[in-house]
Amino acid sequence: MIAFDLALAAGILLCAVSALTRRDRTASVAAFMVLGLLVALSWVRLAAPDVALAEAAIGAGLTGALFLRAARRLGPLRPAAGRTLAVPAALVASGLGGGLAWVFASASPPAIYAPLVAASLPESGVSNPVTAVLLNFRAWDTLLEIAVLVVALLVANLLGSRRLVPVSLGEMTLPFARIVAPISILLAGHLLWQGSSAPGGAFQAGAVLAGGLLALVLAGLAPTGTLVVRGALIAGLSGLAVFLIAALGSEALTGSLLGYPNRAEKVWIVAIEAALTLSIAATLCLLFTGFEKRKTS
C-alpha cells in the first residue's frame, strides 16, 4: 500500500502546484477541485471518513463552484508584478515546510485525547466518536463555528453580492436536476441519521443538501423571488438560533451549558443536527447564489 500512498501524495502535490501556477483560471480551479478529491481519498487512507466526506462535498464541490463563479466575474489573471521576492519567499516557505515535516516526523504523537474520548463515549449518547466530540464534548466550538457561518452570511448580505442569474443550460439539465435533487434530500437525511453511529453528520448532510439545491437553481427550476431569498436567509440564521435555545434549555434543565439531560443525549444531538443541516444547506446555497440583483452601475 505504500506505493499507493506515495503515488497519491505525488498527485496531491502536483495538483496543488498546478492549481497555484496555471495562468488559465478555469484550469487552475479544475486542478483545485481534483486536489480536493485526491485529498479526500488520502483522508480515507488516514482512517478519517467523516472528514473525507466533508472535504469531498464542501472542499472540492462547493468551494470549486464558488471559485468558478468568481473566476467568471473577476476576468483573466492580472500580469504578475514584483518577481524580486520569489527566491527569498521560496527559501522561507520550503524552510518552514521542511521544518514542519521534520518536527512531525521526529515527535511522538500525544496519546491523551483518544483514550479519554473512548472512555467517555458511552455517556455521550452517540457511538460515532467524531459526532460525540463535535456535539457533546466540544459542543461550544461547534456553536461558535455556526456563529462564524452566520457572520460570513451577513458579510455577503451586507456587501450585496450580485445574484447569480443562471444561463439557460438546455433541456438536458432538467432530468439531471429532477433526479439528483430528490436523491440528495434522501442522502442528506441518511447522512444526518447515520452520523450518530457511523461516518456522517450535520455538515456532510448540509453540504449534500446544498448541492441538490444548487442543481435545482442552475437548472432554473428553483423559484428566485425576493421572498424566497429572504426565507432562505431566515433558514440560514435559524441554525444558530436553535443551537442557542438548546444551550439555554440545557442550562435550565441540567445547570450546565450544553450538558444534555441524562439518557436523552441522542435526542438533543439529533435535533440540533437536524436544525444545523437545514441552516448549513441554506447558508451554503445563499453564499453561492448571492442576494440581490444589483444593477451594473
Binding site: 478519517a48 468568481a70 457561518l149 452570511l153 453564499l287
Partner: peptide, 28 residues
Amino acid sequence: TNPVPQAFVLTGIVVLVAVTAALLALAE
C-alpha cells in the same frame, strides 16, 4: 485516527468555505 483533530478539521472545512465565500464577495 484521534477524533479530536478530526473534529477540528471538520470545523475548519466548514469555516473555510464560509470565509472563502465572504472573501470572494469582497474581492468581486
